[in-house]
Design a protein around this nucleic acid. Structure first.
Length: 269
DNA sequence: ATGGTAGCACGGCTA
């Protein structure tokens, strides 16, 4: 079963790009971020006509996540547990049944966190974007831990907005004070992985300079000034199913590209 | 220090 994550940066502007990519790479399941669309304005029928079940968790203008699946999805749940008052649509999960058994799919769009606002003591300013990012990551850690307590193997994938290591950036010094790379951000990410998750790309032996995002500005793609911020984390049970993983970096060079490219795994589910 | 680009939606925010 081929499962991909793809921050598409706006479904309306990306419909043709995504449709062409689907035809060329034929994933069974796509976890999409930044659909920037309400549920009712998402082009559901377009993807249903291509053979996909469509589950969305949308929001007007910003954020929004969706799952496309050629395999039936069950028990769809919207919103990351831990804050019922969070208005931002950044999390959707569902169960897929394969030949061997079930797999829990979690699709996330982790907050960017910039600009970083710190008080005189160096603590994130309450109500600021960086504080929101860290609070969201604490909720993610709790959910990731809870998933390990269940019987079901789990995949947690999406746009993490985290550069895990200096090697995951062409120019790490540019990101030193950025919310994607601050020690505090990376520590929170490492704590989640350390619960018992496997980075699918790392496990499959990715080459140096494996990036998933190049900014639209300053000709970042032409200079390969990229970062790796889209990740697929696998619980131990899901890691046992891993057959292959990769990045469709070529998608960044196509017409009307997103600033992110797809990351995919092949799992023997 | 600023502005560079893109999307949504039509002003200004988000990244």
């Amino acid at each position: 079963m081929k499962i991909a994550t793809y921050n598409i940066n706006g479904i309306k502007a990306r419909l043709q790009t995504v449709t062409d990519w689907l035809a060329e790479t034929t994933p069974d399941i796509v976890l999409m971020q930044e659909i920037k669309s309400l549920d009712e304005t998402f082009p559901r029928e377009h993807f249903e006509d291509l053979g996909y079940q469509v589950e969305t968790h949308g929001q007007k203008g910003f954020n929004g996540v969706a799952i496309l699946s050629r395999v039936p999805l069950e028990d769809v749940s919207r919103g990351l547990p831990g804050d019922n008052d969070d208005p931002q649509a950044r999390w959707i999960e569902a169960t897929v049944i394969g030949k061997q058994g079930a797999l829990r799919l979690c699709n996330l769009y982790l907050p960017n966190g910039n600009p970083v606002e710190l008080d005189a003591a160096g603590e994130p300013v309450a109500g600021g974007k960086y504080a929101y990012k860290l609070a969201w990551m604490a909720r993610l850690k709790a959910r990731a831990a809870a998933l390990l307590e269940t019987e079901m193997p789990a995949l947690i994938a999406g746009d993490y907005n985290i550069i895990p290591q200096a090697e995951d950036a062409k120019n790490p010094e540019k990101w030193r004070d950025d919310a994607l790379f601050l020690p505090r951000s990376r520590r929170a990410y490492r704590e989640i992985v350390a619960l018992g998750y496997t980075d699918a790309l790392e496990a499959s032996g990715m080459p140096p300079e494996t990036f998933t995002f190049w900014d639209f500005q300053r000709g970042a793609y032409d200079k390969n000034d990229g970062i790796r911020i889209d990740h697929v984390l696998l619980s131990p049970g899901a890691a046992d199913m891993l057959e292959d993983a990769g990045v469709d970096a070529w998608a960044r060079g196509r017409a009307k590209p997103s600033d992110h490219v797809p990351v995919w795994v092949e799992l023997d589910v």
